[in-house]
Design a protein around this nucleic acid. Structure first.
Lengths: 142, 142
DNA sequence: TATTGTTATACTCTATAACTATA
DNA sequence: TATAGTTATAGAGTATAACAATA
């Protein structure tokens, strides 16, 4: 079905993302979260406790979007909000014990899905792909 | 701002796509189309004339979505519909002269944006990235 | 005045269901 | 009955604007 699309980077990135999201979604389903919620948990676990706006910035999403994420994660018992005592405008968001456990298991499941996705490349090419994407997205630093 | 996100393939693919789409969007703006419309034009030019549903299949989008794309491309004078004489349920969609010219120029502009995006990698690594993505998305065939 | 979280709202993108005309 | 295109509608996902509390 050659239509000239197969050489376009945009097409390849989009469909790679779609296929990975499919695998990841299935892998995360047992833990009751999806890939974006996992990303929020990872950021929150990174430097807890963190304000909602700091977390939103790290993910490149709007603060109003973050409200919705924290709402659902809180409803699932994975995180909790509390007012920052030193600046009561802020919510400090932290993982609950259940949230930390879930994060741990979900990351493992997600990593496994990622490895299955990358399997056709072999270890060296898979590593190079990740380094190349990091260079493009994050700048020079590997 | 290390938060553990930088090693996740989903994050890297998403943000690579976002940054490329930004560059491509700016490069295509002078031609009055966006990246998705360019993809439709490429498919239509691949084996014209083609039915709307065939084109939708090649792009992995719904036929109702294709209707909207063809609507806007037709309004811009880039394609035209005509009924298939052998099966009047079908529309054969073909590029107009203006559409073919626009495709040609838009592809060049898009390629240039893509090269600028890949520049930090150097030619060899850029080539390897594309081959790796093709392997993941299209299967073994480079 | 400026900022954080929130709410209400709107916009983009896409799909599902129902309709039409053809087969 | 089945299929191609169309239309109306609905659902994600996200952002913008306005508001309350706090700084």
């Amino acid at each position: 079905m050659s239509s000239g699309l197969e050489d376009r980077l945009g097409y390849l990135l989009k469909h790679a993302q779609l296929r990975l999201a499919e695998l990841t979604g299935a892998a995360l389903a047992p833990y009751g979260i999806d890939g974006r919620e996992l990303a929020v948990l990872i950021v929150l676990a990174g430097h807890q406790p963190v304000s909602q706006q700091q977390a939103a910035g790290a993910l490149g999403i709007d603060r109003t979007t973050m409200v919705a994420f924290v709402d659902t994660l809180e409803a699932k018992g994975l995180v909790n909000r509390r007012a920052d005592e030193r600046d009561r405008r802020r919510n400090l968001v932290a993982l609950t014990e259940h949230g930390a456990e879930t994060l741990d298991r979900a990351v493992r499941a997600s990593d496994e899905a990622q490895q299955r996705f990358l399997a056709p490349l072999g270890p060296a090419a898979a590593r190079e792909l990740i380094v190349a994407l990091q260079t493009l997205v994050l700048g020079a630093g590997a």
